[in-house]
């Protein structure tokens, strides 16, 4: 492997962009295919399949054995609201290797005692994304859990604009209907607002905060594995 190729692969990862390293295992010849270059690649279809699954693997093409090193950015979970459910959700998400950030402008909620070892940002969502929290991208999952439109709505707007692979919001169907009205007024179309999962979480009859956390995480895992977002 040439150091330039290795450096380019590492640079794509640092920039949170997907890339595939194609290696001819007989000759050692290699080329790096960046996410934006896949469509123009002779192996486009195969590369897309591997990118979607996020899995590296050996393929045969033109009589050659090629190994595809598939690199997709690590998934981040941004939780809006340092609430009871988040206290259960954050450590479970960390166990699934999601990089978790909890955002809540209410300093009484966002305390390290309530969230030991979890990255906490005590700012309004818009301030958080303009400051200490890296901008959202399609390898992010966003769960809005405050029940307060003043806090949840700006985060949902950012999540939809960024094309996050998972956008979920807590609240009853009635609450959600009002939320959809507000987002529609803000200029979002049905295709966008339809991406919000609400009521949040797989329907497993979850009753307690940890159970709701399981339902949310299961929904995130399904969204991630079925759309191929993130490592």
């Amino acid at each position: 492997m040439r150091i330039e190729t290795l450096a380019a692969l590492n640079a794509e990862r640092a920039a949170r962009r997907a890339a595939i390293l194609v290696t001819d295992v007989a000759s050692g010849e290699q080329r790096l295919v960046r996410e934006a270059e896949i469509d123009a690649d002779p192996l486009a279809e195969t590369l897309r399949t591997h990118l979607a699954s996020g899995r590296s693997g050996l393929v045969e093409a033109g009589g050659r054995d090629l190994f595809l090193t598939v690199q997709v950015p690590p998934v981040r979970l941004v939780v809006i609201g340092a609430v009871h459910i988040s206290q259960a959700l954050a450590p479970m998400a960390a166990g699934l290797d999601l990089a978790v950030t909890v955002i809540d402008p209410r300093t009484a909620f966002a305390t390290p005692e309530r969230f030991p070892g979890i990255e906490l940002v005590s700012l309004w969502p818009d301030e958080a994304f303009a400051g200490p929290v890296p901008p959202l991208d399609r390898y992010c999952a966003v769960a809005a859990l405050t029940h307060d439109p003043k806090i949840d709505d700006p985060a949902l707007r950012s999540a939809l604009r960024a094309g996050c692979f998972y956008v979920g919001a807590l609240g009853s169907r009635k609450t959600h209907a009002r939320r959809l009205d507000r987002l529609t007024e803000a200029g979002f179309g049905q295709a966008e607002t339809g991406r919000i999962r609400a009521p949040i979480g797989l329907d497993i009859g979850a009753a307690t905060p940890p159970e709701i956390a399981v339902a949310i995480l299961a929904e995130i895992v399904a969204a991630r594995r079925r759309t191929g977002a993130g490592a």
Partner: peptide, 13 residues
């Protein structure tokens, strides 16, 4: 695995 490739680059450099 990502740390490992970063290490490979920095070791080589």
């Amino acid at each position: 695995d990502t740390d490992i490739l970063a290490a490979a680059e920095s070791w080589r450099r």
